[in-house]
Design a protein around this nucleic acid. Structure first.
Lengths: 248, 248
DNA sequence: CGTTCATTTGAATCGTATCAAGTGTCGTGG
DNA sequence: CCACGACACTTGATACGATTCAAATGAACG
């Protein structure tokens, strides 16, 4: 398991892959310097916990590389994913010392961490950071609400199609691609994680993925590599009618 | 329908019932004055739309009195409530000109509105407002995530118990009451609104409310007035084990 | 008194969960 | 090189919970 992928933290903010999307996006050079003083990098292997619910948090930070998940659990073991953390997403809540959710590395993850106390002080007197954080929080709230519609009202098949759409859309934002060609991506989630995301069992996830494959909505190579020949067909299956618009 | 209840907008912020919980909570007197310059009141009758999804928004604002709901709809009519707006809750997203959700008055509602453009300018140079808005948005995000667990993983009975707990908890925050006495409140929602909140049908809501009544978890006078003899019993039914703690 | 609307209740159906078994792939150790 | 277990995933049979469709009840109002 001691592969060393691209996870070497660039110490330099200017070259950081999330420089223009993370909480620091709007910072000027001098503001970045103040951030760098309280920042450090941490790596987590796929499957490893990043934070346990109830733990004291001595840092907040950004996902730089990889995928992490925010989950909530009931005592009897039922769990629900409540956030999918992709590169540039923020972890932790300023002003809160104790974690409210479990955070787990879904793939190998590189986090850019800020010591909590000095970061909170920075928020107070750096409007560029506070503003960006507000903007990001509003975006997350919108995402959470879209997700609520999925959880509350969509069928299993629609839920799977919705999840695939979300991942496809994100991928479309990163890798530039032709307008109407097939979309190709790797699922960063196991069937179980997909189930926790969608409020289903892993068996139902498996069945519905197979069904979408049989119906030609997607095709698979291996278990994780997905090709979507016609993205608007997938969106139709998801029950959304935002036709075509990959860039939200 | 032309009842005129307590919905007379106090023009004076100092006497406003949500003065210390709304977006203006942290404002100093001079900051309040700048807000007052761009503020006006609007009333909405129960059942009336406040904003339609896709509408241009020329204001943002706070719910002062009453209950409103934020809902998302699919083309085929399925709808999911994604926010329950109580007094002091904020409506609208600074920086966004077009409404993303339908907003409907569930009861009679009094809103304190701010013209959008000047309000956005105020955010820029009034850290007290920006900060409070961030704090409120983070709270809403937490609420949305708790709700996602309810939608994704709880049974119909647990969903109803969860909703009643949430309303009971809110009521406990407003009306001071003895530590361990019975909790009494009015449901501000119809069975259909409850169903839209919980991702159920109204028939299932009705059945589960009846079941909780038969099992002595709650008692009803009329359809809407609820008495909870033992709040910890209700929390147990909700599947939460936050025992007793009414104040979160 | 009749209409309307919210709610309740009943019976049948359907979708997803549950329980159980089986497949395929990978890495390890004999 | 093959047997082994571990793990992720698939598939099947059955059970159960919530939906659907339908009808009945009750309160509010003109």
């Amino acid at each position: 398991m001691l592969q060393e992928p691209i996870l070497t933290g660039s110490q330099n903010c200017e070259e950081c892959p999330i420089r223009h999307r993370a909480v620091c996006a709007r910072c000027e050079t001098d503001e970045l310097q103040r951030l760098e003083e309280v920042k450090y990098y941490r790596r987590f292997e796929a499957g490893q916990p990043i934070i346990w619910c109830g733990d004291r948090m001595d840092f907040v930070g950004s996902v730089v590389l990889g995928v992490a998940s925010l989950t909530q659990a009931m005592e009897d073991g039922r769990t629900q994913m409540v956030g999918l953390l992709l590169p540039s997403d923020f972890v932790g809540r300023p002003g809160r010392a104790v974690a409210a959710y479990d955070v787990t590395a879904t793939t190998d993850v590189l986090m850019c961490c800020f010591r909590r106390a000095p970061f909170e002080a920075l928020i107070e007197d750096t409007p560029h950071i506070a503003h960006r954080l507000l903007e990001m929080t509003l975006d997350e709230l919108d995402a959470a609400r879209e997700w609520m519609l999925v959880l509350g009202r969509k069928t299993a098949r629609e839920k799977i199609a919705s999840l695939l759409s979300i991942i496809a859309r994100r991928d479309a934002m990163l890798h530039i691609r032709r307008e109407d060609g097939p979309v190709v991506f790797d699922l960063p989630l196991t069937r179980e994680a997909m189930a926790d995301y969608l409020g289903l069992t892993l068996e139902t996830v498996s069945r519905q993925v197979s069904a979408l494959r049989k119906d030609g909505v997607i095709s698979l190579e291996g278990k994780r590599h997905v090709t979507v020949p016609d993205i608007s067909r997938l969106l139709e299956e998801a029950g959304d009618d935002m036709d075509g618009g990959l860039i939200s």
